[in-house]
Write a protein that binds this DNA or RNA. Structure first.
Length: 582
RNA sequence: UGGGGAAUAGUGUAACGGCAGCACGAAUGACUCUGGAUCAUUUAGUCUAGGUUCGAAUCCUAGUUCCCCAGCCA
């Protein structure tokens, strides 16, 4: 039984979630765009872009931005570009570029023929720098990084002007050309914009436009040894691409006056920048720096570790693009900085998978059950429903025999109140099989642990039916001991033990001290034999346990299942509440 | 401390001077061959203080709290 129906749609489909009329999403950015459309500000054009820096893998926060930018283009019949903001050769790598392309595509978005790199514009940006020099708007500064910092002033005090600030244009031009020609060592000179060292906005205190970096760029190689700063690149890149609405996160609000200054002085097309709050999620971290630290420090197995909030991690974990898109739609867009509860993400996955994931059975903590009155050597094929939410998913045969394994948790020698499962003398239903009654409990004489149960079955209840109409509260899952396939389960929990991992109780501790030591538990998994040969990416619901997806580490002999998310567990809540009563 | 932003149930997000709504969470019940799903019900909110107005989450004034900015990172 394959799970192809829940594989993501081909990337060519640029319309991942057609919006039913009346259900169009709305937020303050779309409001602005509607207004711009009404007033004809951009002649009816809507053109956005998603501009990541290829210095790490994309995470769920980027998904929010991707859904926003591509979603707006879709909703308003516009376009959305994909652009790598690759102005810092020291941090950027092709591996990251490739992962970004894969992730955006997997999420279901299509940039068509509009894949760009800021580095494609290096020559134009260089020319613009010369233009500003000509206009007397920029100068070559020989202050060291430390000196620049010292002369920048503080939040309350103005900075001091560089001694090189009033160099003649011709000298600046000559020096800048020598910078490009590689005449100077790294850090010895910068090109600075001549704006206002007393500005209350520190970004306008003669910001650096170009720095010298004798570093190999992932695309331009060694063609350049000077590189433009992000601030001197981003706005112009948007301008070149004729972007109408440059949507970015809140921390760039302070930079907008600088972008506007460059655009104005250069006299080029001006996009409109709109800022929104980035996504924060409980029990995880979202900064690329911290994510990098987790990877480099070996705290996780890689960028695509299923515990990571990266797109590739979520994908490996078993998340669907549909669930992530739905999540992004539900969290909305605003300027308030907040933290979304991870339970909403989990809800979106469950909601999606409930409709589509085939059900199967598997036992994590096996307890042997011998059905004494069931004929030895007999095997019956039980018909099981593949998905009660989807009749078209059909049924399958599951082998049943005299010895089965059930979940350790599904038996209590001394059952608490409201416990509906197996206990001495009690009857439960083995899902799709028979009703059984516990007659004997066998324990390890040394430890006292229950090691085996003996039961009797009611032959009249084949398939789990009760012809006499009697009600049985408990239905539990099982696997036939003689037919079980041993798989591996990877049970994931939150990566951190704290809602906000950055909150540390002692000075000197970091988010790493809040790592959850139990975020991954590997366990043998006894699953029904039909799962042999399960292939990577398939998603299943193991009844009563949760949704799992097949990990790429799986082999035909030994499937590996990642637990994507557990099922909601009402019983554990009841039990917890009972524990508190005592 | 200068500048730039933001404050609506536990969380996220609507309401654009006219009934504070939705989702997640939590709780209760119904139903159930998954203690799943589904259905029903409940819970709980406009940062504070003034003002304008017939009427304020929305407008005005003052205050409070939180976030961002002192990279040759993005």
């Amino acid at each position: 039984m394959k799970c192809s129906n829940i594989n993501s749609k081909p990337p060519s489909e640029n319309n991942p979630s057609p919006v039913p009329p009346g259900k169009e999403s709305s937020d303050f950015i779309r409001e602005i765009i509607r207004e711009d459309l009404r007033t004809g500000k951009y002649q009816g054009r809507v053109h956005t872009r998603f501009p990541p820096e290829p210095n790490g893998y994309l995470h769920i926060g980027h998904a929010k931005s991707i859904c926003l930018n591509f979603g707006i283009a879709r909703d308003f019949g516009g376009k959305c570009n994909l652009r790598m903001d690759d102005t810092n050769p020291c941090k950027e790598e092709v591996e990251y570029v490739e992962s970004i392309l894969e992730d955006v595509r997997w999420l279901g978005f299509d940039w068509e023929d509009r894949m760009f790199y800021a580095s494609d514009y290096f020559e134009q940006i260089y020319l613009w720098a010369e233009e500003l020099i000509q206009k007397g708007n920029a100068y070559v500064c020989e202050l060291t990084a430390d000196q620049v910092r010292d002369t920048r002033g503080t939040l309350t005090q103005p900075g001091r002007e560089s001694p090189f600030r009033n160099r003649p244009v011709a000298e600046n031009l000559e020096l800048f050309r020598q910078m490009r020609a590689g005449k100077f060592p790294d850090g010895s000179r910068t090109l600075r914009a001549k704006i206002d060292m007393a500005s209350p906005n520190l970004n306008l205190r003669d910001p650096v436009m170009y720095r010298i970096l004798h570093a190999e760029h992932h695309r331009t190689g060694d063609a350049w040894c000077i590189y433009p700063m992000y601030d001197f690149t981003h706005g112009q890149s948007d301008s070149i691409e004729r972007i109408t609405h440059s949507i970015c996160t809140l921390e760039f609000e302070n930079h907008r006056p600088l972008y506007d200054w460059y655009i104005r002085e250069l006299g080029i097309y001006a996009p409109q920048q709109i800022e929104f709050a980035r996504l924060n999620l409980t029990y995880t971290v979202m900064s690329k720096r911290k994510l990098l630290e987790l990877v480099k420090g070996g705290y996780v197995r890689g960028w695509d570790d299923p515990r990571m909030p990266t797109i590739s991690g979520l994908r490996r974990r078993g998340y669907t693009p549909e669930a992530i898109r739905e999540f992004c739609a539900r969290i909305g867009v605003a300027k308030v900085e907040g933290t979304v509860e991870i339970s909403l993400l989990e809800h979106c996955l469950r909601e999606d998978l409930n409709k589509r994931a085939p059900r199967v059975m598997g036992v994590l903590k096996p307890l042997k059950v011998v059905i004494d009155n069931y004929p030895e050597g007999q095997v019956e094929q039980m018909e099981a429903v593949n998905n009660p939410e989807d009749a078209a998913a059909g049924t399958r045969q599951v082998p049943f025999s005299r010895v089965v394994y059930i979940e350790e948790d599904d038996f209590r020698e001394d059952p608490p109140k409201k416990y509906h499962r197996l206990a001495p003398g009690k009857e439960v239903r083995l899902r799709y099989a028979y009703l059984i009654t516990c007659t004997e409990v066998i324990k390890d004489p040394k430890t006292g642990a229950v090691v085996e149960l003996h039961c009797t079955y009611d032959p009249a209840t084949r398939g789990g039916n009760t012809p006499d109409g009697r009600k049985v509260k408990g239905t539990i899952h099982w696997v036939s001991a003689a037919h079980t396939l041993t798989a591996e389960a990877r049970l994931y929990d939150y990566l951190f033990t704290k809602e906000n991992p950055d909150v540390v109780e002692e000075e000197g501790k970091t988010f790493l001290d809040n790592l959850n030591p139990n975020s991954l538990v590997v366990s043998p998994f006894l699953v029904e034999p039909g799962l042999a040969g399960a292939t990577a990416g398939e998603r299943y619901q193991f009844e009563r346990l949760g949704y799992f997806s097949v990990d790429p580490d799986a082999t035909p002999e030994r499937p590996v299942f990642n637990r994507s998310v557990t099922l909601k567990d009402t019983w554990s809540k009841i039990e917890k509440a009972q524990g508190k009563e005592r």
